[in-house]
Structure formats: structure tokens, C-alpha cells
């Protein structure tokens, strides 16, 4: 049976490339390239795999900025059929993000909403629960397998000390864990085709202050010795000495 799937995609600055100031420890965020957030990629891959198996349509939603088209193009190349970029994103306000995305989803037919369980830059992990409240749809979170059939969905969910298989009626919200899949690297031809595909853009209808005041933002101090040896013959004796000081 074909499914209408909405996938939520977050665009983030490339945190792997981010450095912190040597003296102040503050993050240096200027000129960082933007990319798709890690778990959002797993969410896209999961949605596209479900479509490939059952048929249907995958619609991507980004609550971002006027620089978010690049992320949607990448999502197209991975197999997303249609995309909406909603502008007006503000850092630090998961409540606003949830309201804007829920507003859009309410007006969109969908059997499943797929998103990441926790975004890799902020780790807030609030969106799945918030959306489920705002949309009144059940959430099955931290999924490593998703099997829809006959108006129901069966999901294997990972918890800290055990796993569970849960089921619920559709429509449902499903948040995915990193282990659910290995996101595909689209071939060049698909990337080129994706570049020509139109992207819908609209402005968020809501704008509210987060009320969060940042007092400080710094790298935690690390006072490691950082004695790195490229010649193992020199490094091994040092390492052995350090180990032997602790265990005798």
C-alpha cells in the first residue's frame, strides 16, 4: 500500500568543522558551511526506503532560512519527491520549531511523519514528543525498524536496557535512531537532476521570542598533555611508563 510520508529535515552549520577560540573557548561559527543534520539524513533514508518498498510520496519539510534550499536539493537527490522550505527559524526555540512544523503538517495529508530522535548539534530531542502533543498523533520513538501494514505500523524501538516492538494506528509520528540505516550517497546524475527541481518556499506565520538568555558559551577546559609520538619506538616506552605508574 502506498504511503504519504512527511520527513522533517534540519539544516545545521557543519559542527565537525567548527573550532573554538584558543583563548576564550568560544565557538567560531562564522563562515561555517551548512549541511543536513545527521539524524535528519537517517530520517530521509528511512522515508525513501519505505516509499521504494510500498510506493507513495515523500515530502520534505525544513524550518530554516533563505539558505536552506541547498539542504532540500540534497534531500531531493536522496529521493525526496517534494519539498517545502519554511523560513523564520530561530536557534534555541524548539517550541517555535514544533509549532511551525505542526502547523504545516496539519494542512498536509500524511500517514507517517518521520524525523530524527535527537538532533546532532543541539541534542534537544523535544520535537518528537512536542509534535505528538500538537498533532494528537501517536509517537513511536528511537526506531530501528519501521513496518507499516493495514493502517497500522509496527516499530522496533531501542531503549537503554532493552528493546520493544510497539504498534500503533496510522497516522503516526516516528523518530529514528542513527542505527536504523546507512544514508545513501546519491549519484552525480541524481544530484544534477535534483538541482533543477523546484522548491516550495513560504514564511513561517508565527514569530515568538524564546526567552532564553545565553550567559556563556565556551569549550570545556581540557588540560591534557597531548604528547603525540609519530615514532612508536619513542611513544611506547612513554605510554608503558604512564601505565606502570598506575598498575603495579
Amino acid at each position: 500500500m502506498p504511503y504519504n510520508i512527511a520527513v522533517l529535515i534540519k539544516q545545521i552549520p557543519d559542527i565537525d568543522q567548527m573550532k573554538t577560540d584558543q583563548n576564550t573557548g568560544e565557538p567560531m561559527t562564522q563562515n561555517l558551511p551548512l549541511r543536513i543534520e545527521n539524524l535528519s539524513k537517517n530520517a530521509i533514508e528511512a522515508a525513501v526506503q519505505l516509499k521504494e518498498k510500498n510506493g507513495g510520496k515523500v515530502t520534505g519539510l525544513i524550518f530554516g532560512t533563505d539558505r536552506s534550499n541547498a539542504a532540500m536539493k540534497e534531500a531531493y537527490a536522496m529521493g525526496v519527491d517534494e519539498g517545502f522550505v519554511i523560513t523564520g527559524y530561530q536557534d534555541n526555540s524548539p517550541a517555535l520549531t514544533a509549532k511551525v512544523l505542526a502547523g504545516k503538517l496539519k494542512g498536509m495529508e500524511h500517514d507517517m511523519v518521520i524525523l530524527g530522535n535527537q538532533s546532532a548539534d543541539t541534542y534537544t530531542g523535544l520535537l518528537p514528543g512536542m509534535l505528538s502533543s500538537l498533532l494528537g498523533e501517536p509517537l513511536i520513538g528511537n526506531a530501528i525498524s519501521v513496518e507499516p501494514a493495514d493502517g497500522q505500523v509496527k516499530v522496533t524501538r531501542v531503549l537503554e536496557d532493552h528493546n520493544v516492538i510497539l504498534s500503533s494506528k496510522l497516522p503516526a509520528i516516528i523518530s529514528v535512531a542513527q542505527e536504523i540505516n546507512e544514508p545513501r550517497l546519491p549519484p552525480v546524475l541524481q544530484i544534477m537532476a535534483a538541482g533543477r527541481k523546484p522548491i516550495n518556499s513560504e514564511q513561517a506565520g508565527i514569530n515568538e521570542e524564546s526567552g532564553v538568555k545565553v550567559l556563556s558559551d565556551r569549550a570545556p577546559k581540557s588540560d591534557r598533555k597531548r604528547e603525540v609520538y609519530e615514532d612508536p619506538e619513542k611513544g611506547i616506552p612513554e605510554v608503558v611508563k604512564a601505565i606502570k605508574e598506575v598498575i603495579r
Partner: peptide
């Protein structure tokens, strides 16, 4: 802050209209 705890945090903060802060 467990998987379940964060889901409940999201759900409660939206349904009660209370500001959340996690992790």
C-alpha cells in the same frame, strides 16, 4: 534524560504550554 524522558518532556511542555530545557 533517557529516551523516554525526553519524549515525555516534549509532550508535557507542548500540552502544558511550559518552556522546556533538556540534557
Amino acid at each position: 534524560s533517557t529516551t523516554l524522558g525526553r519524549e515525555i518532556a516534549g509532550s508535557l511542555s507542548a500540552s502544558l504550554g511550559l518552556q522546556p530545557m533538556t540534557e
